[in-house]
Nucleic acid binder design. Sequence first.
RNA 1: UGGGGCGUCGCCAAGUGGUUAAGGCACCGGGUUUUGAUCCCGGCAUCGGAGGUUCGAAUCCUCCCGCCCCAGCCA
Length: 553
Amino acid sequence: MTDPDKPINFIQQVINHDLESGLVDRVITRFPPEPNGYLHIGHAKSICVNFGLAEQYAGGCNLRFDDTNPEKEDEEYVNAIIDDVRWLGFQWQGDICYASDYFDQLYSWAKYLITQGKAYICELNSEDMRAFRGTLTEPGKNSPFRERPALESLNLLEEMKTGQIDEGRMTLRAKIDMASPNINMRDPVMYRIKKMAHQRTGELWNIYPSYDFAHGQEDAIEGVSHSICTLEFAANRPLYEWFVDNLPLPSQPRQYEFGRLNLNYTVTSKRKLKQLVDESYVEGWDDPRMPTISGLRRRGVSPQAIRSFCDSLAVAKTDGVVDMAQFEHFIRDDLNTNASRAMCVINPLLVTLTNYGADKSERFVVAGHPNRDDLADRNLPFGHQIYIDRNDFSEDISLSRKKFKRLVIGDYVRLRSAYIIRADDLIKDDSGEITEIIGSIVDDTVGKDAPEGIRPRGVIHWVSATDCADCTVKIYDRLFNKAAPDADEESFLEHINPNSLTLIEGCKAELGLANASAGDHYQFEREGYFTRDSKSDSLVFNCTIGLRDNWKI
RNA sequence: UGGGGCGUCGCCAAGUGGUUAAGGCACCGGGUUUUGAUCCCGGCAUCGGAGGUUCGAAUCCUCCCGCCCCAGCCA
């Protein structure tokens, strides 16, 4: 799994050092999502880093829900996250962990800190607390409650816990340093009152621990050796360490930060993705245009493509924006080697083959993949009438064969895996639209080179007009038409691409496709990669991504 | 502005005093091809800036410039 040629990243350097020095004997990491939304491609990187490290070092990785704020969290998200991690192919160590499982322990550690004179109940309201905190350039001022006797704080904390104090009236704060240049160290809140039921602990608690008071201790309880998070938590590290140093923890985890993944032409912020869902800009968290794991899955992106992409990313401290094209490369790369080939005519144009009897028919057995015989062969019916794509025919006979490698009247083209045909005539309706092409086959050309004197202009796909499956195809474009939708002042919503979804009905697919199921990947030859939509009962295919298209006029 | 972090090709990114400054994506040429796909060949940077140390610097020092994060009882 580990690429020997891939350079060692800075976290691996730290781990190697910790292992050699004996500081650590087993590498334990963790992926700690808050269940307040669905996982997205950015989380995938974190998942790959954490589970990947555990795998490389034969350690373990925990899946732990950081459920310390019932206000934003929901069981729906918990289940979706579990599904996504599993779908990506990762297995966590032991049982799933929850911060809420540690609420009792956290609470007793809070009391311990009060006893040590290192925490106190503060009655400043949020507005005053902000004022007392100072600013980036000015130090803060001590809370008037800072020196309150430990016993008093202990009693008040108990009252907070049991619901005797109103929300917002009090907090438990760590007594650190109101003059610290690091604002996170200016007596941060450890517990706040939230008289709210928690999806796992119910009505048991009226107070909930803050992220800072919970995270490092959760890591310590679980024996996490390397707690890897994203760059924005770097300023919280001194606080993380302060709790680790001042509490009688079972282990001393260390925090390391790396740059989170950013992709252009999309947003990776749970808050923004939730807004897109809540305000119906998309159909849901799993809308195929969403950069969520579930959206990518429904779109037809494979777990392996996501993992390959994530593995291609550097674990470093630079915060860059990765080009969507890089992700697309890995999607195509995976699909090209794994997707079965098939034919589907998206804009059907009827072709009647005059020299192929209406009562005649054949079946061609065709490979499912050009270089993989483990993928099942296909059975393609052929007959008197077929469909080709309207884009594969042109009335302009002046187009050079180099410029237009498709069908024109009087010239030949190869039907993929079938006959060479010639277009002889066309029929139009009253409005001037072409309704039918009249053509003919060249005998004995299936699976054989073109006979002397006949040079097909190119190869086009087709489907039997009588033996095919009607289907709908959904083509997606980027959700935003600006590379950095959330870069400037105006809302990212201003940059939503109004044409991100194109629905095309009346497409004609080769017969076998009628049995496709969601999760199967196909390459519709000359078009792109598709998968059956998991949310539709009828035959609907989502375009995962188009084939690369290099030709220019 | 106080603190923390980061600046190597259009994008991502190796590089830890001596290399022709990896690799991938994108792009541009050319070849193969019953998918204008795939595949194959080839092209593509002097390292944010200015000084300095050194026989020698992307790598060390100094100053400057730019970008990101922190002033939620969010995570």
